[in-house]
């Protein structure tokens, strides 16, 4: 499988605080990569770096072989190739669900309103929210809003989907429906890079797990390697702290 995203030597500081201290990471096409790590370990910053929402101090971001961290590259077309879902949904409150989903298709990809809406309604149908197409986001539950946000991110058929702790702001009973949608996308072959606190989900869905600590990749491997037999003491410590047991597959828990 060909490589879609490669990060090499990414460095980023906020003032004196060095958040990323030379990150190397590769994501193959169709892969699901989970970023885990304590709060403040740089997971969200890294995702923003990939989407060029955060200028980097050093290093390179290659998307499909192209150096998108080059200042001569126009960021808007690059961002259009990458879908992002945020922790707090960030739906546009003044637009209906349908307009939220079609905004980028119509104004960035310049698809006609008819085409964009047909595609959006099809996607909303698939997640069971077609009847809410004309509603405004504040009429939906958190789980529904986040699913709309995911659909908004994939409506432009991006090459890569970035998920930034998409369930962290949700009530526990709403987490399931969002994870189920992510699972479906993963099964359908979407390339996903996600920061997550859901260890069980990461173990279940991810092809590879990357543990960030102190601005560096402390350990990476298959879920079984990282969750089952972590090499690094700090990985073991982190997993124990966040409830490493939840890292076991659901079958093993019962």
């Amino acid at each position: 499988m060909s490589e879609l995203l490669r990060l090499s030597g990414i460095r980023k500081s906020f003032g004196d605080r060095e958040v990323l201290r030379g990150i190397d990471l590769a994501v193959a096409e169709g892969d699901v990569v989970a970023l885990i790590g304590a709060s403040g370990s740089g997971k969200s910053t890294l995702l923003r770096v990939v989407n060029l929402l955060e200028p980097i101090d050093d290093g390179q971001v290659l998307l499909g072989g192209e150096d998108i961290s080059d200042p001569r590259v126009k960021p808007d077309p690059v961002r259009a190739r990458i879908g992002v879902v945020f922790q707090h949904f960030n739906l546009f409150p003044h637009l209906s669900v349908l307009d939220n989903v079609t905004l980028a298709s119509r104004h960035v990809l310049r698809r006609s309103r008819g085409d964009a809406e047909r595609r959006a309604l099809d996607l909303l149908e698939r997640i069971g929210l077609a009847e809410h197409a004309r509603s405004y986001p504040d009429r939906l539950s958190g789980g529904q809003q986040q699913r709309v946000a995911i659909v908004r991110a994939i409506a432009t058929d991006p090459d890569l989907l970035l998920l930034d702790e998409v369930t962290s702001a949700l009530d526990p009973e709403l987490v399931g429906e969002v994870l189920e949608l992510v699972r479906e996308l993963a099964r359908a072959g979407t390339t996903i890079l996600m920061a997550t606190h859901e260890m069980a989900f990461a173990r279940d869905v991810a092809d590879r797990v990357v543990f960030l600590d102190g601005g560096l990749v402390a350990e990476e491997g298959t879920p079984d390697e990282v969750f089952g037999s972590p090499r690094e003491p700090r990985t073991r410590e982190f997993l124990a702290r966040v409830g490493g047991r939840t890292g076991l597959p659901p079958a093993a828990e019962t």
Partner: peptide, 16 residues
């Protein structure tokens, strides 16, 4: 600011 972030992440230009 998260609204601007969301808009830019979709590929919309500053003006858009």
């Amino acid at each position: 600011p998260s609204q601007r972030l969301a808009a830019r992440s979709l590929g919309l230009s500053h003006a858009q």
